[in-house]
């Protein structure tokens, strides 16, 4: 198994891990108890997906790193997540729009990964596909309710859209790593997921009385390890206990 394949796997695994960490930031702070529980549930699913993929990436890398080593002992430039998921939570509208843009990608990605040539990845993806569909139902519902809600909720959704849209397209930009992974049948080519994602996002935004922004120059680099300073802060919090007490056990 080549480095390119491990790298391609980390791009998905890290996106899930970083999003899970962001979502847990809502625990105890969501606007309603039901949403607090919902966000924690989504975070748990996405974390579970990340754990499976990180474990598999460690096995394929064959350098002795397990899921913990990969999650807690890498620095920001070693992370391969989408820039979208490291964006701060902002308000509830911002978090829900970020989740929606992610879920709309995830529901395209997982069914493809479910037919990966790697049976372990295929198994993880088969479960994740069902979970992502449920998450999408929830996040799309909130984008519609807030976008087509009060003047205030519409204004906030609009502001979130302006803020997050430039990060939405990175998931669909191919590079050599992606082409190698696709060649090996490990993962789909990112660009092949764009049409489905775009159709769904445009339909939901329109339903939400939100404009579909024109394609900007998509912000990119996360999948190659070039991150915003937001990731460094996130990792500092996520990794602090593990790094302070190496090898500690419950």
């Amino acid at each position: 198994m080549g480095d390119h394949e491990v790298e391609a796997l980390l791009r998905v695994a890290d996106s899930c891990l970083v999003l899970a960490q962001r979502l847990t930031g809502w625990c105890g702070h969501a606007p309603a108890l039901e949403e607090d529980i919902a966000l924690a549930n989504v975070a748990l699913d996405v974390l579970g997906q990340a754990r499976g993929l990180l474990t598999r990436a460690g096995e394929l890398e064959a350098a002795g790193r397990d899921e913990d080593a990969l999650a807690y002992l890498r620095d920001a430039p070693d992370f391969r997540n989408l820039l979208l998921v490291e964006q701060p939570n902002g308000d509830f509208a911002h978090t829900m729009l970020r989740q929606f843009l992610f879920d709309a990608w995830a529901v395209e990605l997982w069914p493809e990964l479910a037919s990966s040539t790697d049976p372990v990845i295929a198994g993880i993806a088969g479960k994740a596909a069902k979970e992502a569909a449920y998450h999408l139902r929830h996040s799309a519902g909130w984008v519609e309710r807030l976008g087509d809600g009060t003047d205030e909720s519409h204004r906030r959704m609009l502001a979130s859209l302006e803020d997050l849209w430039p990060y939405a397209g990175e998931a669909f930009l191919d590079d050599d790593v992606d082409r190698a992974a696709a060649e090996a049948g490990l993962a789909p080519l990112p660009s092949s997921l764009l049409a489905g994602w775009r159709a769904r996002v445009e339909a939901v935004l329109t339903e939400s009385t939100l404009p579909v922004p024109p394609d900007p120059w998509w912000q990119r680099g996360g999948r190659q390890g070039r991150h915003t300073e937001q990731l460094t802060r996130l990792l500092a919090e996520m990794q602090v206990v593990h790094r302070a007490y190496p090898g500690a056990r419950w």
Binding site: E34, N41, D45, L136, R137, H138
Partner: peptide
């Protein structure tokens, strides 16, 4: 269809089919 869900057939206490969702997420996954 992806964006529509499933629903319980009946209330487990009284058997009525007139039920509504309060939250898509509950105390466990």
């Amino acid at each position: 269809p992806l964006l529509t869900g499933d629903r319980p057939a009946a209330c487990p206490r009284c058997g009525s089919a007139t039920v509504e969702e309060l939250s898509g997420f509950g105390s466990t996954a």
